[in-house]
Design a protein around this nucleic acid. Structure first.
Lengths: 116, 116
DNA sequence: CGCTTATATTGACATCCATCAATAAGCGCA
DNA sequence: TGCGCTTATTGATGGATGTCAATATAAGCG
């Protein structure tokens, strides 16, 4: 374990420019990776896209199973992942479960990239 | 007898993203998921962050191994994943390999989210 | 040529993950 | 209450993935 001189002006050009005081910490990186993990599946991207394109803004599972050509349990699993990542909201209306984009969630995800 | 109600092939290369017809297609979703897969690892996010924060804009592997507390082959593997995802550029200078952000790559990734 | 350093590749291994079949849980209705 | 429909959960399984140790490749230097 060695310590880096944090405030050194460092015009050294050999091999080692430090400057990681602004870089992502371990904890933040792990947190942010969770969001991208949720996005890192083609079918989940399509789910988000379909829900976003829906005129009413919310869609029930029954309408999501067919276009993805996946079993109902699989779709339910993907939706759960997206909800837990904060990207979707779930609202139960009677027998049906309606999913909608969590407000600002995609913007926040995009900002993660801008602020890396 | 061909009765498919297809869209006209856009002979115009100027400006037309998928318009509005439907959500993400299977092929596009798979392609975009590759980018997010590359981003879906805490250590790769930290790599991007460190490289972005570097004053020179490029960093050699030797400077990336230590702050991540990972073995050199593992770092090399992560860097390869990021390069193949189009997020990083690799430039070999003598014995060292310098990695820098691929121009516009993070913006393009952020736009994927905005245009879902 | 050998030696040293820096990076990449290979192989192995453990863990994670997407998917499905089967089943459970909730809700509406007769 | 019991039946039918919608959604969620469980368990199993094949495949992807992150990590390391060992080794290979490559470049500079004596």
């Amino acid at each position: 374990m060695n310590l880096l001189p944090v405030l050194e002006p460092t015009t050294d050009t050999t091999c080692c420019p430090p400057a990681e005081d602004t870089a992502l910490g371990v904890k933040e990186a792990k947190q942010q990776a969770l969001v991208f993990k949720a996005l890192a599946d083609p079918n989940r991207l399509r789910l988000l896209s379909i829900i976003k394109a829906s005129p009413s803004g919310s869609t029930c599972v029954c309408d999501l199973t067919e276009p993805l050509d996946l079993g109902q349990p699989t779709v339910s699993h993907h939706l759960k992942v997206l909800v837990e990542a904060g990207l979707l909201q779930r609202e139960k209306r009677g027998t049906w479960a309606y999913f909608s984009l969590a407000p600002g969630a995609l913007d926040r995800a995009a900002n993660l990239l801008a602020n890396l």
